[in-house]
Amino acid sequence: MAIIEVSNLKKSFGELEVLKQITFDVNKNDVVAVVGPSGSGKSTMLRSLVYLEEINDGSISVAGHKLVESGIYSKPKEINLITSKMGMVFQHFNLFPHLTVQENLEIAPKLLKKEPFSVIQRRSTELLEKVGLSDRAKAYPSQLSGGQKQRVAIARALMMDPEILLFDEPTSALDPELTGEVLQVMKNLAEEHMTMIVVTHEMEFAKEVANRAIFMDNGEIIETGHPSVLFTNPQFDRTKAFLNRTLR
């Protein structure tokens, strides 16, 4: 069953048409890898889903609720409801530098969820353990390595119990030796059947973890399929050219 439905999405920055006619569905429990050359619109597409970008035309609905239909956005209340179903992890972590790791996790549920603080605390403790950072709860983000920061960011997103997690190149800002620990956390989430959309350059990871890959180029989805098929037997020249460049 589709949990995200995107149809005919169009987005321009001024004259520049960044997304041309994007249509795709994401099923519950899917792990979707989005790949494509730089500037092809992957980030913009992902950001549109959580209303970080306002699209010009097309429809997006999440878990049956319409975020935008034919370019007309729903009421703010409905928009909030929809975006609250999604968590997002950024390339540059975007942790709150003035808060400790634990406070980073707890601030949003503390302000937004109607549940006792003890419940929130229990969850933050659990999630820090899950990402292997129990001993860094009192540290500030500046005291962490990149890999640790990204794991905190993932835990922070999970604190709000999202149904879908979006990742925008979560390992691209990391030293190569630190990507593994982050990919491992994501792998664990996939095994727990978290629905995820991951924009990534990590082809190995995509092959191993994703059950669907989307190849984007120049604001369009060129082709989509199971990674094992798409990466080894692409139908289109543009896909082939891209894969030749990235897989060598």
Binding site: Y51, L52, N80, T83, M86, F90, N94, F96, A108, M160
Partner: peptide, 23 residues
């Protein structure tokens, strides 16, 4: 202040007031 701070606040669901005062 990096614009990522506003974006992270937005995706966590904080409203404008909460983002301003807390972040």
């Amino acid at each position: 202040i990096d614009k990522g701070q506003y974006e992270a606040s937005h995706v966590l669901g904080l409203n404008k007031w909460q983002t301003t005062t807390r972040i």
